[in-house]
Simulated assay, not measured.
Amino acid sequence: MTVVEIKSELLQHCQKQVDNRFSRIKQTIADIEESLLEESKSSSGDKHETGRAMLQIERENAGKQLQEIEKIIPLLKKIEVAATSDYARLGSLIYTDKFTYFISLSIGTVPLGKKDYLCVALNSPVGLLLSGKRKGEEFNLNGSSYKITSVK
């Protein structure tokens, strides 16, 4: 696989994760709305009010999650898989002596072919350590030293 093909596959995997999470959150909100309607039809005093309050809190939490995912969507669109750079940045594949990182979203390990790639966000602890680094540079993470062998 070429670097562009690898980046494309990894980006598609990230997009799928975002789409799935977005769908789950939207479904959760729809379920909460339906439950709120059901609660409105019920009139069992304090129990009724407690149930409504709990549903309102759940709806607020789901709304916050939706806002977070909506911030991620434009970030994914900024990743140009064909772009190359000699330093680590959003969309870079960073090969180290231990792991290969794809700076995109923090979704963890993604197996492609016979190799695993660690997808990390630019603003994550690992992403911040990698950002701006070039081939030959080193960084320390959790007491381990890593040497960058290539940036694509």
Rank of each mutant, 00 (worst) to 15 (best):
Q56P: 01
K26D: 10
I69M: 02
Y95N: 03
A30M: 08
G91P: 03
Q17F: 14
D97L: 05
K78P: 01
D31P: 03
S35T: 01
S42V: 02
K16Q: 14
G91M: 05
I94T: 02
I69Q: 04
I29T: 08
N20T: 04
D86F: 13
E39A: 15
E80G: 11
I69K: 00
E70P: 00
A88M: 04
Q56F: 15
A53E: 05
R59W: 10
M54F: 08
L93V: 12
I29K: 10
N20I: 09
Q17W: 15
G45P: 15
I69W: 08
Q65M: 15
E60Q: 14
G63Y: 11
E33W: 07
T96V: 13
K47T: 07
R21V: 03
S43E: 10
S43Q: 10
K41P: 02
K47Q: 05
A53S: 07
S85H: 12
Q56N: 14
E38T: 03
D97F: 14
Y95T: 09
Y95H: 14
Q67K: 11
A88K: 01
L36F: 01
E68W: 07
I69Y: 06
E68G: 02
I94R: 00
S35F: 00
I73N: 06
R52V: 09
R89E: 15
V81I: 15
I32M: 02
L55E: 03
K26M: 10
S44A: 13
L90Y: 04
R59T: 02
I72C: 07
E34M: 09
N61Q: 11
E33S: 09
I72G: 02
I32D: 01
G45E: 09
